[in-house]
Amino acid sequence: MTRRPTRLVRVLSSALAAGALATTAACSSDGDSDGSRGSGVTASPAARKQPTASPTATLTESGAQTALITAADIEDDWTQVRDTEAENWRDSLLIGTVDVSDFLSAKADAADCQRLMDSLFDDDLLGRPSGASALRGFQEGDSRLLYQVASYERTDPQESLDWMATLPEKCDEFTVTDDGEQRTVQVIEPALPDVGDAREGLRVTVKGETGGEDATLTLDVAAVRVGNNAITVTAGGLDGDEHDSVEQAVQLGTQRLEDVLAGKSPAATPSEIE
């Protein structure tokens, strides 16, 4: 799991429109609070359910840092590592050229699978951030977890999420080759918490050899969009399944980002409460 050195506020409804509609209903109600009398003009159920709007915030560098999770947010025995170490994580099992013959007539799918492998190696599934960004790395045994918060002001993270959604079908199983060694890659879609404006997850399993011995690399990847900002979590290693930690990071991390964008201080993590 890697990252090269270069490496989500909901879209809020218009308070003006909702307020104008509610005012029209109130003025035509002859004092009745539900707006059911007078002219009969009432706010629609959809309008009444709209959240209170606030200005769309721009994620700053300090805001991105504040939105990062801590080891307490993902429980288990994760230990935070230095940022410089996390920036340079690389896993050689992700290196290789996709075997186009695996795809028969769907040659374009091979290009998507190659993009997946390259993006996992570079830790840039959503592309390079166009605005503020921050990252934090954690380690537990042979497993690693990389958590990123970034703004995509001049790009559209939804396009990358839409692309990720196609991969479990396009890249369900394929082969990559590196220096004559073949590795089998499988891609499935795990469940994620219903958070943010949009979200996608992948579990990628790479079976091959490392140091002359059979090895299986398992990576759980999740991306959550909040407006034109996003969090990305990549976790796993030779120790296997880290999906629970990814779920926790997604659940708590999305809330932290939403709080920061709303101008609030994120809720204290367990470690800060003790």
Rank of each mutant, 00 (worst) to 15 (best):
D91V: 12
S92V: 14
L93V: 00
L93P: 02
L94F: 05
I95N: 12
G96M: 05
T97H: 11
D99V: 14
V100N: 10
V100R: 12
S101E: 12
D102N: 14
F103R: 09
F103M: 03
L104E: 11
L104I: 04
L104D: 05
S105Y: 06
A106Q: 14
A106M: 10
K107I: 11
A108W: 04
D109H: 13
A110G: 15
A110C: 09
A111V: 15
A111P: 03
D112H: 14
C113T: 08
C113R: 03
C113F: 12
R115A: 12
L116C: 07
L116M: 02
M117R: 06
M117H: 06
M117W: 03
D118V: 15
D118N: 12
L120P: 04
F121A: 15
F121C: 07
D123G: 08
D124Y: 01
D124R: 12
D124N: 14
L125R: 14
L125Y: 11
L126T: 15
G127R: 07
R128N: 10
P129D: 09
S130F: 10
S130D: 10
A132C: 07
A134T: 10
A134I: 02
L135S: 13
L135V: 15
R136H: 08
R136T: 15
G137M: 00
G137E: 01
F138M: 01
G141D: 05
G141W: 02
D142M: 04
D142I: 01
D142P: 00
D142H: 09
R144T: 15
L145S: 01
L146P: 00
L146N: 06
L146C: 01
Y147K: 03
V149K: 02
V149S: 00
S151G: 13
S151F: 03
S151L: 06
S151W: 05
Y152P: 00
E153V: 03
R154Y: 05
T155A: 13
P157D: 09
Q158G: 03
E159S: 15
E159H: 06
E159A: 13
M164T: 11
M164P: 10
M164R: 09
T166H: 11
T166L: 05
L167C: 04
L167H: 11
L167D: 04
P168R: 11
E169C: 02
E169M: 03
E169P: 05
E169H: 13
K170T: 08
K170Y: 11
D172N: 14
D172Q: 10
E173Q: 13
E173A: 14
V176E: 00
V176P: 07
D178H: 11
Q182R: 07
Q182A: 06
R183F: 04
T184G: 02
T184E: 13
V185H: 07
Q186G: 07
I188N: 08
I188T: 15
I188G: 10
I188S: 15
P190A: 03
A191G: 12
L192V: 12
P193K: 09
P193G: 12
D194V: 07
V195L: 02
G196E: 01
D197F: 08
R199N: 13
R199G: 08
E200S: 05
G201R: 04
L202T: 10
L202V: 11
R203V: 07
V206R: 01
K207N: 07
K207S: 13
